[in-house]
């Protein structure tokens, strides 16, 4: 009696569901993830304000908004961070920061969405992310720089108050 021959069977991995799952995972990460790291790149504890609301709850838009952050250095001094660039603060007289803000403003004005007002101010907002323990003599340098550049529409970033705790009736 002849021995049964072992048939050479190849195991094939079906790649189609694998690619489907990876695609779904990618889509999830892209939609839910925050790619705008530069907008909140400086880790800080913001001051708490119960009147602060999310962007979409305010009537004012966020189109063209510039984000300026205040970062504490190792030496204890503060630097302004716009996008990924660090700038020394010099009482509103820092030429490089002023020039960079001016460049950003000019770019946005050139887009045609905004115009400069008669008093030299521009309508689009600037968001200030300032740590809650930053001393005011450093904060005023940032505000003065913004005001000097014509940015008067300021959005102060804050921490939302904790949600009210539910009380159980006895």
């Amino acid at each position: 009696m002849p021995l049964p021959t072992v048939k050479d069977t190849r195991i094939e991995v079906d790649m189609v569901p694998y690619i489907d799952i990876i695609t779904l995972l990618l889509l999830f990460l892209v939609f839910v993830g925050d790619l705008t790291q530069h907008a909140a790149s400086v880790q800080m504890q913001l001051p708490r304000a119960d009147q602060a609301k999310k962007d979409d709850e305010h009537k004012e838009g966020t189109l063209g908004r510039i984000v300026v952050q205040l970062d504490k250095t190792r030496t204890g001094s503060y630097q302004a961070v716009v996008e990924t660039q660090h700038y020394e603060l010099a009482n509103g007289a820092n030429a490089s920061l002023n020039q960079y803000l001016k460049h950003l403003i000019d770019t946005r004005l050139a887009d045609g969405h905004f115009t400069r007002g008669a008093d030299g101010t521009v309508a689009f907002p600037v968001k200030l992310r300032i740590p809650k323990d930053a001393p005011m003599y450093e904060v005023e340098k940032v505000v003065a720089t913004c005001a000097k550049a014509g940015l008067v529409n300021i959005h102060y970033a804050a921490e939302a108050p904790p949600p009210p705790q539910k009380t159980t009736k006895q």
């Binding site: 009147q51 305010h58 921490e159």
Partner: peptide, 10 residues
Amino acid sequence: TEEVILPHKL
């Protein structure tokens, strides 16, 4: 993480 803001005008 959507930060909350206080909008004001200088």
